[in-house]
Design a protein around this nucleic acid. Sequence first.
DNA 1: CATCACGTTCCATATTGCGAAAGCTAGTCC
DNA 2: GGACTAGCTTTCGCAATATGGAACGTGATG
Lengths: 266, 266
Amino acid sequence: MERDAASADALQVASGGGSQTLLRGLAMLDAVGGDTVKLADLSQRMGLSRSTTHRLANALVDTGFLTFRPGDGYRLGPKLMQLGFLAQAQADLVQVARPHLEALAAACEDTVHLGRREGDVALYLDKLPGRRRIEISSRIGDRHPLTSTGLGKALMLDDPHTGWRGQFDADRARGAPPADFDRWTARMQDYVAAGHAFDLEENEDAIRCVAAPVRDAAGRIAGAISVSSAAQYMDDARMAALADTVRAAAQAIGRDLGWNPGKERS
Amino acid sequence: MERDAASADALQVASGGGSQTLLRGLAMLDAVGGDTVKLADLSQRMGLSRSTTHRLANALVDTGFLTFRPGDGYRLGPKLMQLGFLAQAQADLVQVARPHLEALAAACEDTVHLGRREGDVALYLDKLPGRRRIEISSRIGDRHPLTSTGLGKALMLDDPHTGWRGQFDADRARGAPPADFDRWTARMQDYVAAGHAFDLEENEDAIRCVAAPVRDAAGRIAGAISVSSAAQYMDDARMAALADTVRAAAQAIGRDLGWNPGKERS
DNA sequence: CATCACGTTCCATATTGCGAAAGCTAGTCC
DNA sequence: GGACTAGCTTTCGCAATATGGAACGTGATG
């Protein structure tokens, strides 16, 4: 029965629910990925006989999920662009993020935020109050400066360094708490390298937070999440530990937005 | 042979090849489309029993091609965004268009062009010389005004009317042949309504052409194609006839770019 | 001309998928 | 509380469907 299930990776074809052919076909789309693959190559990647591979690939070609050019190979087809676009169109960040935010809120007892960049401010899209007595004074729909909040900084992680100064100054001019730019820059560089951001009582006294960016199918930062709490619950050790948790949650949301991890930043 | 069984016809699926399950699963993605569908609804759309529908849908959910929210229904999943993005990334307009351009060139004996908008000029990406003695003096890489060429006008078909004047004047200032704006506008409105554009010896004397826009998965105009020839071969009757051919070719290219026709203009 | 690389088609076999019907769980109405 | 309903999930015996080895085209390449 199972000859060489060992080589078939990614999607567990064997366990699923008994729709082998469908699962194999879908796995084939993954196997093709961004490449242009010849039949022999493809059958090897899938661990299937050439004839089976051929039949599946043909079905995919007939339906437009793959494209075939003789002598060249198979590649992803137009139907995927079409459906991918539809999927993207109806994927609402708030809705997609909800379950993950709830899980995150359950894991740590603190307030969880979801936000997105809007112009050059951070727009708060969702908030789950923590189960601690302290209350974070933010509301859905609020707009906050990018450079003085954890969430905002997470949204900036991909920005070219050249724009930092302008944003920093603009935020101060608009009422963000004063701060030292050089020190801010030094920390920001760490955040960029780490893939998350902190807020160390910069925006509001006695409030600290840990934030991480959420990426979409294009790899761009589509939003960010953060966990905030009173400084007394947020010593340096806990922030470091939380960083992993928050980053993991952000990545899980990203995955639901079609983001494919793998190729990492430099 | 088989295009796709997107419509209510599920029995046709069997005829294609021998991979029923896969084809049904893929058809299911189409059936879901942009909606959020309940299981019962979905099984009806597919003309399948509820249990079969359930099994297939589950396989799609397990692999991330669909998303399921209890009490809400099924919708397109993250994997489609991911693959859709990959597909889009490697879809090169020139390469995708080639076979269609060749077919078009074979059908009419004239010169066929492919172009794209770049800034506010039309950039020529590909050219297939016709089999007629006359020679069209254009080369790949050429940039031409939008308002005085058929290809350029096709690229403008979705532009808001408010921008027409500015583009028209800018092109004249940059050396496009003089013309009367009111008359140009009147014709342009016809082109917008028809979904194609003509060039009536406006850019170059004794050259006429028929052009149509190519749309991508987002429905935006990603490029345009045109058929050009000496005016002597291009009387009004032939241009009208060619318009359909050219539009059909442009749509075929669009389909390969993930464009979904369907809702048409009136 | 022999060889290779690549895609396509055949066919007997048993694995895989099929759908009717029954089982769950949660909400709603008397 | 008990009887309905709406939705989703699971079971199971039968046969339709998918499988892979092998053979066949076809066009390059040495």
